[in-house]
């Protein structure tokens, strides 16, 4: 509309942006499609599930913190390769990563999620929600699985997933941004590129609005993760302090 403050961007520019962001995504996505196809779709056996369940709560938390941190390191690399991200001031780079890196991990989770068996690739095999019982966060785990399942049902291409991840990361409404306008411009361009690619892929009109709904679902998942971490830390402060990855502690204020 006329009130739309979106920057004027040529189709060639949009195509270029799609290319850059897709390339960044593929270079930093942790598992390539080919690797995923070759990965055995083996689920954990009952005795293995029980072995995860019988781990002490703190050991399971530590294991998940390590896995999340590994995935986040790839997201940081993705961010660095997004056109314009490294031109933002350092404060804003940090703000965007602190708020958005786990959200992108949840978005990327649909690549390693099997809807049929409701399981996710974790620690070498496919794990259902019961594997994570020892964390003591059944409601959060079940919401994360539901989110992954609903992302899978959109059947996004890698291009679409790359642009949606960049869109999430470049959220201009995060608190404490110093150059909000700069971030807004980048996010608007990314949204135009996402619309462009959805149109080109002849996706139905509803996909973009479905993706917009996912943004609020992601925020809710992340704030619930923070709540669960605070509750865990209140009981096991020393475990968090001495055994959790330093990057995880920096990101989630542990």
């Amino acid at each position: 509309s006329n009130r739309d403050p979106s920057p004027t961007v040529s189709l060639a520019e949009l195509d270029h942006l799609v290319q850059i962001i897709s390339k960044s995504h593929l270079e930093t996505c942790q598992y390539l499609r080919e690797e995923l196809q070759q990965m055995s779709r083996q689920n954990f056996q009952q005795d293995e599930v029980e072995s995860y369940q019988s781990k002490p709560r703190e050991a399971m938390w530590q294991l998940c913190a390590v896995k999340i941190t590994e995935a986040i390191q790839y997201v940081v690399e993705f961010a660095k390769r997004i056109d314009g991200f490294m031109d933002l001031c350092q404060n804003d780079q940090i703000v965007l990563l602190k708020a958005g890196s786990l959200e992108v991990v949840f978005v990327r989770m649909c690549r390693v999620f099997d809807s049929q068996s409701n399981s996710v690739y974790f620690d070498g095999k496919f794990a259902g929600p019961d594997v994570f019982k020892g964390l003591g966060c059944d409601d959060l785990i079940s919401s994360v699985f539901d989110f992954a399942k609903s992302m899978c049902s959109l059947h996004l291409t890698e291009d679409e997933l790359a642009l949606f991840s960049a869109f999430v990361l470049l959220s201009a409404d995060r608190s404490w941004l110093q150059e909000k306008l700069q971030v807004e411009k980048l996010q608007q361009k990314t949204q135009l590129a996402l619309q462009h690619v959805l149109q080109k892929n002849q996706r139905e009109h509803g996909v973009l609005s479905k993706l917009r709904c996912k943004v609020s679902a992601l925020r809710s998942l992340c704030s619930r993760h923070t709540e669960k971490l605070s509750a865990f830390r209140a009981v096991y402060p020393d475990i968090v302090q001495t055994h959790f990855p330093p990057l995880y502690k920096e990101l989630f204020g542990a």
């Binding site: 270079e27 930093t28 942790q30 590994e70 390191q73 790839y74 940081v76 690399e77 660095k80 490294m86 350092q90 780079q93 940090i94 990563l97 602190k98 330093p246 990057l247 920096e250 990101l251």
Partner: peptide, 20 residues
């Protein structure tokens, strides 16, 4: 800066995912 030492390092490093 001290509070986000590792993030700063990661942002400044020219690492590739292979090195991660």
């Amino acid at each position: 800066k001290e509070k986000h030492k590792i993030l700063h390092q990661l942002l400044q490093n020219s690492t590739s995912p292979v090195d991660l």
